[in-house]
């Protein structure tokens, strides 16, 4: 099949970018989207041109490194999938695709389709952890976790921090990312000691790092490769209000 790409090319965060058109003949339907870009890049390198920069690592949809916009949708048109697990058979011969990086003040463009997502790390550093002494693992049965809570916590823990929620949100909000972490830890007994402090600190970090607010559009839920529900955002809001008014902090 034949695909026409319009790829956002940008040297760095300071210089202005623009779309560059690439005609890609002989695309195999079995290629993943990133493999198709690899082929484009080999052609560019052979011609002595700069290859298209994009982030990637595991290429099996579990690491959270890859991701960009395809025709205005984060990770492309297939739900619950990262762009590395999106295959060319989902497109048709002759398709014209527009590739853009995640756009947010908190995600400066490093180059082309690669953005700096360390703002998400700063949100985690504010409270997305539990403080426990390291050493030998405790006896598993000593700390009962109800099945339902374990499952809901795992649903939230599926977040790979790819940033698609921020990218898809019209307000560039990191609410789904932050809520996933608050939910993941807040449902487990190990997360209780720091639950109030976590909610307050992570919500503040979201704001400080230049992310927008949530307007309950659920674009993040639609874009999330792990299909994490905006129900987690309501849970984060609950934790935040409870912590703000009832805790001593």
């Amino acid at each position: 099949m034949r695909i026409t790409l319009h790829v956002w090319r940008q040297k760095n965060a300071k210089e202005a970018g623009s779309f560059v058109r690439y005609d890609v003949p002989d695309v195999s339907e079995h290629m993943s989207f990133l493999e198709m870009l690899d082929v484009v890049n080999e052609g560019l390198i052979a011609k002595g041109q700069d290859p298209i920069a994009f982030d990637h690592d595991c290429r099996e949809g579990i690491c959270g490194m890859c991701g960009f916009m395809i025709n205005g949708a984060a990770h492309g048109p297939l739900r619950g999938t990262t762009v590395c697990q999106l295959h060319m058979r989902k497109f048709s011969d002759g398709d014209e695709l527009w590739l853009e990086p995640w756009r947010a003040k908190a995600f400066p463009v490093l180059r082309d389709l690669a953005v700096d997502r360390s703002a998400l790390d700063r949100i985690i550093a504010a409270g997305g952890f539990i403080s426990v002494p390291t050493g030998s693992a405790p006896e598993a049965n000593a700390l009962p976790v109800p099945k339902e809570k374990a499952e809901l916590s795992m649903d939230a823990a599926a977040c790979i921090g790819c940033g698609a929620c921020v990218a898809a949100c019209p307000n560039a909000s990191a609410s789904l990312f932050t809520a996933a972490k608050v939910t993941h830890l807040g449902l487990l007994p190990q997360g209780q000691p720091e639950r109030s402090r976590r909610a307050i600190a992570m919500v503040a970090a979201m704001n400080e790092n230049g992310f927008g607010h949530c307007t309950n559009l659920a674009e993040c839920e639609a874009a999330c490769p792990k299909a994490i529900s905006i129900e987690t955002i309501a849970r984060m809001n609950r934790d935040f209000f409870a912590a703000s008014f009832s805790s001593r902090d």
């Binding site: 205005g72 756009r103 639609a222």
Partner: peptide
């Protein structure tokens, strides 16, 4: 939070 908007944006939901 988004000073530079998408050239193409397609709401999904």
């Amino acid at each position: 939070a988004r000073p530079d908007d998408y050239r193409k944006y397609d709401p999904q939901r």
